[in-house]
Amino acid sequence: MAVFALYVQSSTYACPTLASVLRFAKAALLQQHQLDHIFFYQDAVQAIVASIDLPADEPDVATDLIAFCQQHDIPLLYCVTAAEKRGLATLAVPARTGFIAAGLAEFAMRLDAVDQVVQF
């Protein structure tokens, strides 16, 4: 059994990134591995925006991912500086509920307890 961290940095809009993350997370838990956290950085921080407005016929994988992580108590973290620089989370408009503001320092420290980092 291994402890995994999922590191997400590629764009998440209209592409399979989040679906891949969720599929990997589910498969890892199914095989008795642990997920220490999922961390969003670079352009992937667009996934945390609270005001995303998708038409009903487009899959909303972020919602599924949030529900999955809450159910299994997996911290869903994002780099607050990357989000702020892109104007995606501010004091006035915070990130979508379920995403937790963190820093690179926290991500770096968490890697001590992680066996495998998988990048998306």
Partner: peptide, 9 residues
């Protein structure tokens, strides 16, 4: 007189 340091580091 410098920019605010990033708070994530």
């Amino acid at each position: 007189g410098l920019p605010k340091p990033a708070r994530c580091l």
